[in-house]
């Protein structure tokens, strides 16, 4: 079994790391209206499933009650993809614009950093035309979160500011949970123990040593969040194992597998939502 794995020298991360609780967010109607007015919108509060929604002619605001995360989208009454490209500012300028927008709307977060600038692109092909038309219609500045210098992974830890025509913000999302750093520290599981758990992951259970390889490229320590619609009352300390699997039929299948990085008492494990993550996280 071990011949299946190609592993780098394991990094060392110390003996403990901080525990971050994510208390239940307090979301009342006043708070919802305040947030919505930030975007120049009004409307009446609607509740469905675990989502609070406000919609008017200007935009739609969703607040996810489980996390307090928010997502505002400018109303676009369009009947198809945009047909003309927009000239966007360069990436440095886009980040500057996004930062100042977040500060202006009080959504800026010192724990986050701009990580990339990306675009929404549409390609249109018509039977009678040889050329494919390419339209670039949105520019997105994407932020990632860090705590104590460690990356926070998962879709519950990101900010995205999207720009359309004339650098107008068309969409902003802030997926994050308010955190409370506890004085109590968590005892780290050694990377060696985590590696053993990783090697027993079901992803590799049926691979044959003869024609398959699991190339582990990198191990990082950080925290894992659940999606913003899910209840999570403590961040999950994790090792991220990154690499790829080669089989006869697929030379490179990239994986990101998380392994629980600290000994969590059962009540904290339950609060973290870790048992709900499924096979992407090894407990």
């Amino acid at each position: 079994m071990t011949n299946l794995f190609l592993t780098p020298k394991l990094p060392q991360f110390g003996k403990e790391l901080s525990l971050y609780l994510t208390p239940t967010p307090k979301i009342d109607d006043k708070y919802v209206y305040k947030i919505h007015s930030t975007f120049g919108s009004g409307g009446k509060i609607e509740r469905d499933f675990d989502r609070i929604m406000l919609r008017d002619r200007i935009g739609e605001l969703e607040i996810f009650e489980a996390s307090g995360s928010l997502w505002w989208t400018k109303t676009a009454r369009v009947k198809s993809e945009p047909l003309t490209s927009i000239r966007f500012p360069d990436e440095k300028e886009a980040i500057k614009l996004a930062n100042s927008y977040l500060k202006e709307t009080k959504l800026y977060d010192n724990l986050s950093k701009p990580a990339s600038v990306s675009y929404t692109e549409t390609l249109i092909e018509k039977n009678e035309e040889k050329e494919i038309k390419i339209v670039r219609s949105r520019q997105h500045v994407n932020y990632e979160y860090f705590l104590d210098g460690l990356r926070v992974w998962g879709s519950g830890a990101k900010i995205q500011v999207s720009f359309g025509n004339r650098n107008k913000v068309t969409e902003v999302l802030k997926f994050w949970r308010n955190i409370k750093k506890e004085s109590k520290k968590l005892e780290l599981i050694s990377p060696e123990s985590a590696l053993k758990k990783f090697m027993n992951h079901e992803a590799f259970g049926d691979l044959s040593e003869e024609d398959s390889k699991v190339q582990l490229e990198n191990i990082e320590l950080g925290y894992l969040t659940l999606p913003p619609l899910e209840v999570q009352r403590c961040l999950i300390p994790v090792y991220l194992f990154k690499g790829f699997v080669s089989t006869k039929l697929m030379p490179r299948y990239e994986f990101n597998i998380f392994v629980l990085a600290a000994k969590l008492p059962p009540e904290l494990l339950k609060l973290s939502g870790a048992p709900d993550v499924g096979g992407q996280l090894v407990l």
Partner: peptide, 26 residues
Amino acid sequence: YLDHWHGRGWVSPDPTNSWRAYSKGS
């Protein structure tokens, strides 16, 4: 482009596929 799940809004007739639009984003 405006297709909804049946019973939840507009559903287009079947297209002839004389043109296609592809979109991707982050």
